[in-house]
Design a protein around this nucleic acid. Structure first.
Lengths: 191, 191
DNA sequence: TCAGTTTCGGAACGACTTGTCTCGTAATAT
DNA sequence: ATATTACGAGACAAGTCGTTCCGAAACTGA
């Protein structure tokens, strides 16, 4: 590799500034110029790294979400509680709160972005759900686990609706009650 | 009221053109100029009726969704099936499919739009959910119904996630399985 | 050492969209 | 008849995106 190497501080400044503007202004009011100004960086430095505003926001909002597969909690209840808590925290964080609906909206016009979201975030989350279900089956807590995406939607969907459609705050009671209901749904053996 | 009255055909042409452009281009690529051209009207005629592009799309996408409270189906299973089918059809329609994520994304920057959505759509949907739950309690099928928004999120959330986050098509099996799982969640009596 | 390459911040640019406004004209109420 | 409003068409300013230029700086390889 020849030429001047990229400055890592610029990388970090861009991501930090993006998260800052995102939290302050929200996705729809985020402008690339504002990010460049906040980062003390030229716009060229941003577009040299990200092909579009969408990709910039994606990198800033999704990359810092490191979804660790929760360890075996010993019971389906414990596993589900950890899973719901983690998803609720991810989606409830200021950056995600500002970015998530806008990103999902962009999926319609930018399938490549949707694919990357699928690979970067959904696949890992789905693996966590699957791991929890497999353990529950192994323990004998569940007989017939539902289809993967259905189980995933049963957990992710209500959290998303609660935060972004109903626009309600994270509430301890919601997390607790959701776990109880989802567990009942998963334990049920279809006829 | 003095002056020339508004032409109702212009009203309809604007809404029809908006739905057409929405289905063809999607929310993010919809422009007011394109709507005006498709409707054969001037932009002033649009802005005379709607304060912003958001309100235009909202009117076109939400207004035609007339969520009728489903009649008593005789059982919780029947009521839930009708409810899920109706929500799936509403959100799966081409217009809604193109508009919903964009509208929800705009809620962050336009609380007034969010409030109108709450009143126009969510409140009616929530009433349908509540009616179904009340009937189930009256029948003795359910002991302790969950908090309203929780029950609502258990139905709306998975459908939204399925269509807009997982980007999967409407599938008969999904509707059927979701009903089974949601019913199990609702029937469960928390300790 | 030194030419070639790539980066940097800054700034300009064209293309596009939004929302307002001005035309000249048509329809209605008073 | 006159005032008022709506109509289609289009000009307009403001703002944004993504690209492209600039001169300067940083690094590689011969």
């Amino acid at each position: 590799m020849v030429g001047r190497p990229r400055d890592e501080r610029v990388d970090q400044a861009i991501l930090a500034a993006t998260r800052g503007v995102l939290a302050e202004q929200g996705y729809s009011r985020l402008t690339v110029d504002a990010v460049a100004a906040a980062a003390g960086v030229g716009k060229a430095a941003i577009y040299r790294r990200y092909a579009s505003k969408h990709e910039l926001v994606f990198a800033a909002a999704v990359h810092d979400v490191d979804l660790e597969p929760p360890p075996d909690g010993g019971s389906l209840t414990a596993d589900l509680t950890a899973l719901v808590r983690e998803i609720l925290d991810s989606l409830g964080a200021p950056t995600a709160r500002a970015a998530a609906p806008g990103l999902i909206s962009d999926f319609l016009s930018d399938p490549a972005l949707a694919d990357r979201f699928e690979e970067t975030f959904l696949a890992r989350e789905r693996a966590c759900v699957r791991a929890a279900l497999d353990r529950a089956v192994a323990r004998g807590e569940i007989e017939a686990p539902p289809e993967r995406d259905l189980a995933h939607s049963l957990i992710l969907g209500p959290v998303f609706a609660w935060l972004y459609i109903f626009r309600r705050q994270e509430e301890e009671s919601f997390a607790r009650d959701l776990v109880v209901r989802v567990e009942a749904a998963l334990r049920h053996t279809p006829v």
